[in-house]
């Protein structure tokens, strides 16, 4: 019985971390059709922002939930104004430019922080379920991911800003004719997406040893989760993250973490071959 609880927690944790990793990319790709390949580096910067703030004496949760998103959001704002803004509508060009940005940020982080591993300890202690020891921080990640999804859904569906953003996504000319500036909405969306990437990087920072190249570990997973999710933002994110999270954890339990990762990637290839429009391109149509 205890084992099942532990496995359930691990699977939930796998799904939740995929949701966290992909949320920022999903916003940017889903809303403004820009694939941000520097997404992993935004997460890396979120991690470094958290660690730097904690080392300066800031409370770890403040650093994680406030400082990191704002810092990375601002970086995203600069990136959007200088680079992305000129490339809207040119999907492949944005991919290439953001890939360049990702290398640029890796280089920058290497120059500032050095090519060494840094990290902070997890702020929540572990506890026991029966005979098994569970990492308490996993629960924090599960709760954070759930809150994040609820927040995204309620902002997009329940607020005027979300309505305007969705409207602009469907018809920029129409939104412009109604007096909203698509340029500024895209800018704000990119800021939100970057901030979410920073938040994800910050929340995951205590679990990994951070190096300047850490972003590479996230980008592929985020990329495939978002693409496999399809056109609907929240529903797509939830469905593909659940699918891949379960596959990953199942194979990790059955064999080894490496096979788990490989199984996730193979599942992605197979899924994209069968459903090239993503999960929500076929199921749950019209949801957000």
């Amino acid at each position: 019985m205890d084992l099942y609880v532990v496995v359930l927690v691990e699977v939930l944790y796998g799904v939740a971390s995929l949701i966290l990793i992909s949320a920022g990319l999903a916003i940017v790709f889903g809303m403004i059709k820009v694939i941000n390949l520097a997404h992993g580096e935004f997460m890396m910067m979120g991690g470094y922002a958290t660690i730097t703030a904690v080392n300066l004496g800031v409370n770890v949760f403040v650093a994680m939930l406030v400082i990191a998103p704002v810092a990375v959001g601002l970086v995203g704002l600069v990136v959007e104004r200088l680079v992305i803004r000129h490339l809207y509508g040119r999907l492949v060009d944005t991919m290439l430019a953001t890939w360049g940005l990702s290398l640029f940020f890796i280089g920058l982080a290497t120059m500032i922080f050095g090519n060494t591993t840094t990290g902070i300890s997890t702020p929540i202690p572990g506890f026991a379920i029966g005979d098994y020891q569970v990492n308490g921080y996993n629960f924090f990640i599960i709760v954070a991911a759930a809150l994040l999804l609820v927040a995204m859904l309620s902002v997009l569906k329940g607020t005027r800003a979300g309505l305007v953003a969705r409207g602009t996504m469907q018809g920029p000319e129409m939104a412009a004719a109604l007096g909203y500036s698509p340029d500024r909405i895209y800018m704000a969306t990119f800021f939100c997406g970057s901030a979410l990437s920073g938040l994800a990087g910050a929340i995951l920072a205590p679990l990994v040893g951070l190096v300047p190249t850490s972003g590479g570990a996230y980008i592929a997973k985020a990329f495939i989760t978002v693409i496999a999710g399809g056109p609907s933002l929240v529903a797509g994110l939830l469905s593909s993250a659940s699918l891949f999270g379960v596959v990953n954890q199942a194979f990790t339990f059955a064999t080894s973490p490496v096979i788990g990762e490989v199984a996730l990637l193979v599942a992605a290839v197979v899924l994209l071959r069968i459903l090239p429009q993503g999960v929500t391109g076929t199921f749950f149509k019209g949801k957000i």
């Binding site: 000129h86 360049g100 640029f104 280089g107 290497t110």
Partner: peptide
Amino acid sequence: VVDNALVTGLVLVLFVL
């Protein structure tokens, strides 16, 4: 002085733009 990846990345961004 300058990291390799930084220059490569910058070159790519500037060329795309």
